[in-house]
C-alpha cells in the first residue's frame, strides 16, 4: 500500500515539486519544443535567414534515400546489438548461475565492462580491429580474411556491433542472472525428475520463465542501440564508409553539426522522439505483465 499524505497547505506540495518540474521544463520540455519548432524551419548555415516551411523538412527527409538507408542501418544495427549482447549475456549468466567456486569474482569481472565509457569502448575495439596495427585484424588476415573497416561497409558494421554489444553484455548479464536466480530450484529439479536433460530443461522451463526479463532487455537494448551508441560510432567509423554505419542518431549529429542543415537535423530528432515515445509505451504497457510464478 502506498501511504497517502495529505498536506494542509495548498501550495506546499507544488513548492516541493517545483525543482523537479523546473528541471524537466528547462532541460527536457523546452528543448523538445525548440526542436519541434526548428523542424518546421529552413535556415541558412549562419542563421541569417529563416523561413517557416511547415512539413517540408519531413517530406524531404522521407524521400531522401540516404535517410531511408540510415533507417535500415539503424534497424540492422539495433537488432544485431540486442541479439548479440543478449545471447552472449544469457550464455554467461547460465554458466555463472552454475558456478560454485569463485562465483563472486567471476560475476564482478563480468560486470566491469559496463563501467567503460562508450567512446573508450569504441576506441578499444577500434585499435584491436585497426587494419594496420590491430591484433584482431592481424589474426583475421592470418586466417585469410582481409579485414578493413575503412573500406568495407560490412566490416565497419560488424565492428560497431561488436563494440556496442560488448558494452551492453554486462548489463544484460546482471538482469539475466537475477532472472535465473529468481526461478525456484524445485522447478528445475522437478523437470530433472520428469526426464528433461539440461538442454531440454533450458528451452522448455528456464527460457520461457525468463521471458519477462528477455522482453524487458530487448526493449532496453534496442533503446540503447538507437540512442546511446553515438560515442561508439563517433570514435570508430564516424558513420562511414560511405554511410554504411550511419545510424539515425549519428545522422542527426552529422547533418546538423557538420552539414549545418539545422532544419533537417531537427526534423530527424523529432522522428527519433516519436520512436522513443513508442518504445516507452511498449515498455510500460507490456513489461508490467509478468508471468507469475
Amino acid at each position: 500500500m502506498i501511504k497517502r499524505v495529505t498536506f494542509r497547505n495548498l501550495w506546499l506540495p507544488y513548492l516541493l515539486l517545483l525543482p523537479q518540474l523546473a528541471v524537466t521544463l528547462i532541460f527536457f520540455i523546452w528543448p523538445a519544443l525548440q526542436a519541434l519548432y526548428q523542424s518546421l524551419l529552413v535556415e541558412d548555415a549562419f542563421g541569417l535567414s529563416t523561413e517557416f516551411v511547415w512539413f517540408e523538412n519531413f517530406e524531404e527527409l522521407f524521400s531522401d534515400p540516404l535517410y531511408l538507408e540510415a533507417f535500415t542501418n539503424t534497424v540492422v544495427f539495433s537488432f544485431s546489438v540486442a541479439f548479440a549482447s543478449m545471447a552472449i549475456a544469457l550464455l554467461l549468466a547460465v554458466m555463472a548461475d552454475r558456478t560454485i567456486k569463485g562465483a563472486t569474482a567471476y560475476k564482478t569481472l563480468l560486470i566491469w565492462p559496463y563501467a567503460v565509457a562508450p567512446a573508450v569502448a569504441g576506441v578499444l575495439w577500434f585499435f584491436m580491429f585497426n587494419p594496420v596495427v590491430g591484433i584482431l585484424a592481424y589474426v583475421l588476415r592470418g586466417v585469410g580474411y582481409d579485414w578493413n573497416h575503412y573500406l568495407d561497409g560490412g566490416d565497419a558494421m560488424t565492428l560497431v556491433v561488436i563494440a556496442a554489444s560488448w558494452k551492453q553484455i554486462s548489463y544484460n548479464f546482471l538482469f539475466f542472472l537475477a532472472g535465473l536466480q529468481a526461478i525456484p530450484r524445485s522447478l528445475i529439479e522437478a523437470a530433472a525428475i520428469d526426464g528433461a536433460g539440461p538442454f531440454k530443461r533450458f528451452w522448455t522451463i528456464i527460457f520461457p520463465l525468463l521471458s519477462p526479463t528477455t522482453f524487458f532487455l530487448l526493449v532496453v537494448n534496442v533503446v540503447y542501440a538507437f540512442f546511446d551508441t553515438f560515442g561508439i560510432i563517433h570514435a570508430t567509423t564516424e558513420g562511414g564508409p560511405a554511410g554504411a554505419t550511419q545510424i539515425l542518431v549519428y545522422k542527426v549529429y552529422s547533418d546538423g553539426f557538420v552539414g549545418l542543415d539545422l532544419g533537417s537535423s531537427a526534423a530527424q530528432s523529432v522522428v527519433l522522439m516519436a520512436i522513443v515515445i513508442a518504445l516507452t509505451v511498449v515498455q510500460f504497457r507490456y513489461i508490467e505483465r509478468r508471468v507469475e510464478y
Binding site: 529439479e189 521471458s211 507469475e292 510464478y293
Partner: peptide
C-alpha cells in the same frame, strides 16, 4: 513442498 508446477 511448493508443488513446483511449471507456471507457463
Amino acid at each position: 513442498q511448493n508443488y513446483a508446477l511449471y507456471p507457463h
